[in-house]
Design a protein around this nucleic acid. Structure first.
Length: 209
DNA sequence: TTCTCTTCAATTGCACTTGC
DNA sequence: GCAAGTGCAATTGAAGAGAA
């Protein structure tokens, strides 16, 4: 089997999926029926029909698309119509139509931070925890430290024995609704701007491996 | 053309360790 | 007790391959 291309935008709706969704909405606005091959051809960048089909199937099972009940000749593609338009943000769906839970915690922390303004890691973990997704204090702490390093949050009161560090969201650094993500390479990537806003430099980096 | 199965790289969330 | 750093299992979407 040939090596797969690395995923450069692996979390949340991939860039391709976002483009597919935008194409779907565009076709819907023009009153066009949605077919895999048509979406693939209309995409600004080449996206395989297989990937478009996978996403369309997921959207159909998730209730975002409805299959058109029109008679088809042999070999003609299945046609869909947009059933549920949730805005410009591409819905995250699995192949079976369910919503993936991965990344929910981070998104909740980001939204909670916007609402409560300033907090400690413990307060953020508590506030962002829901019955569906529990946020550990260590997770909130790690996220806040990266946001602070990228100057998305300011340290209001440094931590000391018995006192947790208190952070405050810098309002001018609110770049959008999509939560900045800590990537495997320990860098903070902002999907709203598409930029890496902070890279953690480790002790071993720069020297011999 | 469509569906299903499979593989794989990447992220998330958390536990754990270390140093202060 | 807190901050910082590391490692890992679970989960995800992308994509190849083959069958219907």
């Amino acid at each position: 089997m040939a090596k797969r291309k690395p995923q450069l935008n692996a979390q949340g709706p991939r860039i391709d999926r976002q483009a597919i969704w935008e194409t779907l909405r565009d076709m819907h606005a023009k009153g066009l029926a949605i077919a895999t091959v048509d979406v693939s051809l209309l995409m600004p960048d080449a996206v395989s029909q297989g990937r478009v089909r996978d996403y369309l199937n997921g959207l159909e099972k998730g209730g975002y698309l409805a299959r058109l009940d029109v008679p088809r000749k042999s070999g003609e593609p299945v046609q869909f119509k947009l059933e549920k338009d949730v805005g410009v943000e591409a819905p995250r769906v699995r192949k079976d139509g369910s919503t993936p839970t991965g990344g929910l915690g981070r998104e909740q922390m980001w939204r909670t931070l916007k609402i409560i303004g300033d907090c400690t890691s413990r307060e953020l973990a508590d506030a962002a925890t829901t019955p569906k997704v529990e946020i550990a204090e260590t997770t909130a702490n790690e996220y806040l430290r990266f946001l602070a390093a990228a100057e998305y949050v300011a340290i209001v009161r440094p931590g000391s024995p018995g006192v947790l560090t208190r952070y405050r969201l810098v309002s001018t650094r609110w770049t959008g609704p999509r939560a900045p993500m800590i990537q495997r390479t320990k860098q903070l990537y902002d999907p709203n701007t598409g930029q890496v806003v902070y890279v953690r430099v480790t002790k071993t980096e720069g020297g011999e491996p």
